[in-house]
Amino acid sequence: MLQELSRRERKKIQTKKTIAGIALKLFFSKGLNETTVAEIMEKAALGTGTFYNYFESKEAILKYCLAERIESAKQTCEDIKTSSLNATLKLSQMLQAVGKTHEENQLLISLYMKFYHNPDKGDKKAPHGEWFKEILSTIIIEGQVKNEFRKDIPPEIIIEMFSGILQSTMSSKLEFSFIANINYKHSLLLEGVIKRNDGEV
């Protein structure tokens, strides 16, 4: 019976993923408002009423899909945090992981912001949350303990700067890819903007 229940739950999860995947393709090609629940479910070969067993609205699909992407990025960052890399490489790889998540899901994030972001507020939320700052904090402190990072700078300042890199890259209008943009800023943060001669300390 437990095995049967588990199989049933797996089928429900797969059905939810199928509905979400079909819906996203339609949202991207036609637009969210122009896509109907009936159309989504017809392509999923399921009854229209079944939709509401999984999602309360079309907009809820955006939340679900973005949450899945963020959870995947979070797991990648957790793996980086616990790896044997030094703190500098961990920071670099974390920015790459979160940056890649954003770059690969720009259409989804754009739709999400359109339907969930309040235009009266000036804040745009990055595709990460407190978990990003928590992992970042752990790595920064590790780097200071191991003398990789300066100890005269409070960890909070370094965390804010790295978070700012992501935030500014998200809102950038420059004609660079997201990853290229974030890599330039990361390099500037670590190495500075002043050109140094070979051998200069």
Rank of each mutant, 00 (worst) to 15 (best):
E103N: 11
P127T: 05
H128K: 06
L89N: 01
T88S: 03
S110H: 12
M161D: 01
E4R: 07
I139P: 12
L24N: 09
P119C: 04
G31K: 15
Y64V: 14
A38S: 07
I139S: 06
V98K: 01
E130N: 11
F178R: 09
I40L: 08
L2P: 02
G122L: 15
A44I: 10
P119R: 06
I40V: 12
E42F: 11
I153P: 03
G164V: 05
T76G: 15
Q96L: 15
G21I: 03
S110Y: 12
I140G: 00
L107Q: 04
F27Y: 10
N33K: 14
L174I: 09
F132R: 04
H128F: 10
G49N: 12
E191V: 10
G199E: 13
S29A: 13
E191I: 09
P119V: 04
F149K: 01
I182H: 00
S57P: 10
E200G: 15
I158N: 00
D152N: 10
I140R: 01
C65M: 11
I109K: 05
D120C: 06
F51R: 04
N53K: 11
Y116K: 10
T36S: 15
K173W: 08
E191F: 13
N118H: 01
Q167I: 12
Y54Q: 06
E142G: 07
P127R: 03
N86W: 02
K133F: 15
A126Q: 03
K146V: 04
A20I: 02
E134Y: 09
F115V: 07
Y52V: 06
N118V: 02
N181K: 06
G129H: 10
S84F: 04
F27R: 08
L91C: 02
V201Q: 13
L190W: 03
G192C: 08
E156F: 02
L5Q: 14
H186N: 07
K17H: 07
V193W: 02
F149R: 01
A44D: 05
I141M: 08
Y64P: 13
L24K: 08
S137I: 00
N105S: 09
A97C: 07
K146I: 03
Y112G: 15
S6M: 06
I141Y: 06
K74Y: 04
H102F: 14
N197E: 15
S92G: 02
L188A: 05
K30F: 14
S172R: 14
E39D: 15
I179E: 06
T169E: 02
K30Q: 15
K30V: 13
A20M: 07
K185C: 00
S6P: 01
Q14A: 09
E191P: 10
G129C: 10
Y52N: 03
K125L: 10
I139C: 08
V201A: 13
K195P: 06
K43I: 09
L111W: 02
E9K: 08
K74V: 03
V145D: 02
Y184R: 03
P119I: 04
T88D: 02
M1V: 12
K121N: 12
K74Q: 07
Y184G: 01
A45D: 05
M41R: 11
I179M: 07
E78T: 05
M94Q: 02
G192K: 05
Y64C: 14
R7S: 08
L166I: 01
I194A: 12
P127H: 03
A60D: 14
G122C: 12
E175H: 00
L91W: 00
K74W: 01
